[in-house]
């Protein structure tokens, strides 16, 4: 196979997001490697998104690593996650490994040491998929060093040769965590809107995606025990 006619062109390797309806909005999946910010206010489905992403990887033979920054034990989180139909418990602890970053962050404020801690785990596991959930909590925990942390993270993320999903918590009136968006290749926004009947609807929007033609605008999505699914084309 040759491409002498268009020698400058190349395509990304893409991996499946695991979110029904999303891959067709972005040329078939996330570029490998790349970094993705999934931002939204409370309850919009960010953690569910991240878990689906990792479970897809596990099904595809990829190793996943989940850093949780909240100070809650893994079993507490899994108590709720285990109710989700797409969770395959056989993968937990093997193809999908958990690291409780929150406890480490309580004692350690030096951003480089935080990233070194993360990198130790990444080097050991050599994951193809990484989740940091949520990254915005780190700002509260390490205070004035957050900018340094993000700068350092940006550099190291590119070297980890994985697709990294960072979830970002925002208040309803905030669009997305701007500082984090600078260091990511893709920004996906999850938001609420009102339906004509007065109820709440959820919307997904791909705001930015480097090197990829993507569908724009807000699209309805649903979160259920089957996970997140996007109804691309429905606005």
């Amino acid at each position: 196979m040759t491409d002498k006619s268009n020698p400058g062109a190349s395509d990304f390797v893409r991996i499946k997001s695991g979110i029904p309806g999303l891959d067709q909005m972005m040329e078939g999946g996330f570029p490998f490697p790349s970094t993705i910010l999934v931002a939204g206010s409370a309850g919009t489905g960010k953690t569910t998104f991240a878990l689906q992403f990792l479970m897809q990887g596990a099904r595809d033979g990829e190793q996943g690593l989940y850093f949780t920054t909240l100070s809650e034990p893994t079993q507490w989180m899994m108590r709720f996650a285990s109710r989700l139909e797409f969770i395959n418990k056989d993968y937990l602890g093997k193809e999908v490994k958990y690291v409780e970053l929150g406890n480490f962050l309580r004692d350690e404020k030096d951003p480089r040491k935080v990233i070194d801690f993360m990198e130790e785990h990444i080097t050991e596991v050599m994951p193809q998929r990484i989740v940091i959930d949520p990254i915005t909590v780190i700002e509260e925990l390490i205070g004035g060093n957050y900018r340094t942390f993000l700068y350092e993270l940006a550099t190291r993320l590119k070297n980890w040769q994985a697709v990294s999903v960072l979830t970002g918590e925002v208040l309803p009136e905030q669009p997305y965590p701007v500082q984090v968006s600078y260091i990511t290749d893709t920004v996906i926004l999850l938001s609420y809107g009102l339906s004509p009947e007065g109820g709440r609807r959820k919307y997904l929007e791909i705001l930015k995606m480097r090197g990829t033609g993507h569908t724009t605008g807000r699209h309805l999505f649903d979160v259920s025990r089957n996970g997140v699914s996007v109804q691309a084309g429905l606005r």
Binding site: M1, T2, D3, K4, P7, S10, D11, F12, V13
Partner: peptide
């Protein structure tokens, strides 16, 4: 090598 760049692979 991976197979993403056809000419380089050839």
């Amino acid at each position: 090598s991976d197979r993403t760049q056809g000419y380089i692979l050839s």
